[in-house]
Amino acid sequence: MGQAPTTARLVLASRLEDVPRAEQAVMDAVSRHGFDQSSCFAIKLAVEEALINAIKHGNGGDESREIVVEINVSDKQACVGVTDEGVGFVPNGVPDPTLDENLEKPNGRGIMLMRAYMNEVTFNEAGNCVTMIKQRR
């Protein structure tokens, strides 16, 4: 019989120093539910990219703004939502960093990496909340 799903809701300040706490909560949950090392690497990378985007772009580095991280992990999948207090953005408007002309630009890879390493990545209509799902292998 599988374990009951692990759920948690964390509220962070918009500071990079708070990122490890949220990451650790996610990694503890996926480890508890038997995700393999490769999946753990993928989830850590995607969650970190989402948190960095929320802090830097979503909340514009304003530490008084909060970020909400919602974690729901079962034996079948990990679902992590990251919501900031920013005005949002149009995800499809972000330049593709894998195009030749963008290849040597130092930034703009966060969303691409989230999509590459998770099974599903969706944004709400406002663009200030991203939900990422990784199926357990």
């Binding site: 690497f41 990378l45 970190e48 990219e49 960095i52 040597e104 630009k105 130092p106 890879r109 966060g110």
Partner: peptide, 13 residues
């Protein structure tokens, strides 16, 4: 054992 987009940017620079 780990890398992210921020570090990629540093390496590109």
């Amino acid at each position: 054992s780990y890398i992210n987009s921020v570090a990629l940017g540093v390496l590109i620079d």
